[in-house]
Each structure stands twice: as C-alpha cells, then as structure tokens.
C-alpha cells in the first residue's frame, strides 16, 4: 500500500514539473502551447539514449535539458511569429512530427519497440534505488524548480510575461521585445517539461513513442486549467489530484471485465471535467490570448 502511494507521489512530482512549465507558458505568458509533450518526450528520449550508451546521469541530465531547450529556442523562431490558437496548433503539429520521428527513426530510437533498460539515476557513486529514494530526489528537484519559477514569476521578467498575456500589442508599444520575451517563456517552460521527461525515463526505465501523445498534452492542459487562478502552487496541487485519480484507480481491485474500460472511462471523465471547467469560465488566471484580434 505504501508503495502505491509512493508511486503516485513520484508520478505526480514528474507531471508537476511538466505542468508547471505549461502553467508558466499558458497561465503567465498567454502562450497556448498544445505541443508541450514534445519536449517532455525529447528530454526522456535524449537522456534515455545518452545513459544507455554509458553517459553518466548528471551529464546526461544537463545535455538533455540543453538539447530540448535548444530545440525550443530554434522552433521558436518560426512558430513564435504565430499567436493564439494558431500558435497552439503549430506547436501541436510540431509535437506530432516529433512523435513520428521517435516512431520512425528506429536506427536511433528503436521505433515502436521503445527503449528498455534505462539506468536508474546515479551520481557521485550513489544510485537511487527504491521508491522512497525516488520520491525524495524528485521531490527535491520539484521544490528547486518551484522556487526557480516562483522567483521568475515575481520578478520584473514575470511582470512582463503577465503584460504580454494581457496585451502583447501594448507591451510592444512600451518598448518590449515581445518576441524575445515569449521565447524566454517558451524555453523556460520547455526546460521544466524536459526535466520531467528525463525523470520519467529514469523512473519508469522504459519509454516508447506512445508515452508522448496528444492525450498527455490534454492531461497537462486539464491540470493547468484546473489549477488556474492559483498560479504555480495551483498547478502542483492539481497535478496531485489528477494523477492521484488516474494512478489510484489502477490499483483498485476491479473485476477483470471492468478492467478493460477503466482507462477509457477515466479519460472520458477528464474530458468532461475539462469541458465543465471551461464552461464555468474557471480560467481566471488564464490569458485571453486573443488581445491582438480586432476590437
């Protein structure tokens, strides 16, 4: 039982990193990134491949974040020219293309077979074993990430993010290079997603392209919408709720015949909750994102 709880805590910690990144983009900057999962996947794949080929965990962690962040920075050049739903859709397209790449570049990723045997995190001669170790390590990293984002959001940089969310046009009119600033937000959010992905790979020890689909994007979107209005702590709390619900159900002693439909029924519930949240205009903290359209 305690192991179930710890497992749920660890998965929640991973997804919280993923969600905090998206909260920074959507909630604080108004960047509706529907392709966030691409960077979660990039982090996971990069670190899995590096460590499987013998690169030490810490080096691999830094390199993986660098790769994901670098790709976000590059992708930002064309895609940040777009705004609102078009930006979101282009990012979604990017994420699907990335997934196809994971699936098709089998020489590198082993395609649909995925990458098994990803080593457990180890550093300075110490290897993380057992659930408590993971929970503590990942919890610590989440705390660090939280403090980092919290500091950024409350700084002049965070203030400009909020200004862009409220009215990008106006931010330009007071001399802000909004392209650069939106890219900063994109890259910070990406680094958090990639960190989540790295931690995911080294905890689950097996990854495949089907871990990084639109469903994962919708799941974090649900988390962000659920936690909206309460900023970064809201996202973290919402993650524990949603992941707790998702992972918790798996361990209920359900009859075999019902077991097959548990997952889809859960997803249906998520869909309904998302609809209801939107309908209740539960999006106080979310940017309107359409400020540039004609009044």
């Amino acid at each position: 039982m305690i192991n179930y709880v710890l497992h749920i805590v660890i998965i929640s910690e991973i997804f919280a990193l993923f969600a905090v990144g998206l909260q920074l983009q959507i909630g604080d900057t108004g960047l509706y990134n529907f392709g966030h999962v691409a960077f979660f996947g990039l982090g996971a794949y990069a670190s899995a491949l590096l460590t499987v080929h013998g690169v030490p965990f810490l080096v691999s962690l830094v390199l993986s974040l660098g790769i994901a962040g670098g790709i976000a920075w590059l992708v930002g050049f064309p895609i940040l020219r777009l705004r609102g739903d078009y930006f979101g859709l282009a990012m979604l397209g990017f994420a699907e293309i990335m997934r196809k790449a994971f699936l098709n570049e089998a020489w590198l990723t082993r395609g649909p077979m995925g990458i098994p045997g990803i080593p457990r995190p180890s550093f300075f001669g110490f290897t993380v074993k057992g659930l408590p170790g993971f929970a503590v390590l990942y919890g610590g990293l989440l705390l660090l990430a939280f403090l980092f984002v919290h500091h950024v959001v409350r700084s002049p940089l965070g203030r400009v993010f909020h200004a862009i969310r409220d009215d990008e046009y106006s931010a330009t009119a007071v001399g802000k290079d909004t392209f650069r600033l939106r890219r900063v937000s994109l890259v910070i959010g990406t680094l958090l997603a990639a960190l989540g992905g790295v931690l995911w790979a080294h905890y689950i020890t097996f990854i495949s392209p089907s871990d990084f689909t639109l469903n994962e994007t919708i799941l974090v979107l649900l988390i962000v919408v659920l936690g909206s209005g309460w900023g970064i702590p809201g996202s973290i709390l919402a993650t524990f709720l949603v992941i707790g619900f998702q992972e918790g159900l798996r361990f209920l002693p359900l009859p075999e015949s019902f077991g097959r439909i548990v997952a889809p029924v859960q997803q249906m519930a998520f869909g309904l909750v998302l609809i209801l949240l939107v309908m209740r205009q539960h999006l106080k903290g979310l940017g309107k994102g359409e400020q540039l359209a004609e009044d």
């Binding site: 439909i261 889809p264 997803q267 869909g271 998302l274």
Partner: peptide, 24 residues
C-alpha cells in the same frame, strides 16, 4: 462569445470524451 481558445479547449474535452467513449 468566449475566446476562440476557450472554445478550442472545450472541443478538446469533447474530443477526448467521445474518443474514449468509442474505445469503452
């Protein structure tokens, strides 16, 4: 009269719901 982004997110919710209904 909501923003297109809210409508899009709501339609994502419907999409997730119906997909999984079919799967169930």
């Amino acid at each position: 009269n909501a923003s297109p982004l809210l409508l899009l997110i709501a339609s994502l919710g419907i999409s997730l719901f119906l997909q999984n209904l079919a799967q169930a």
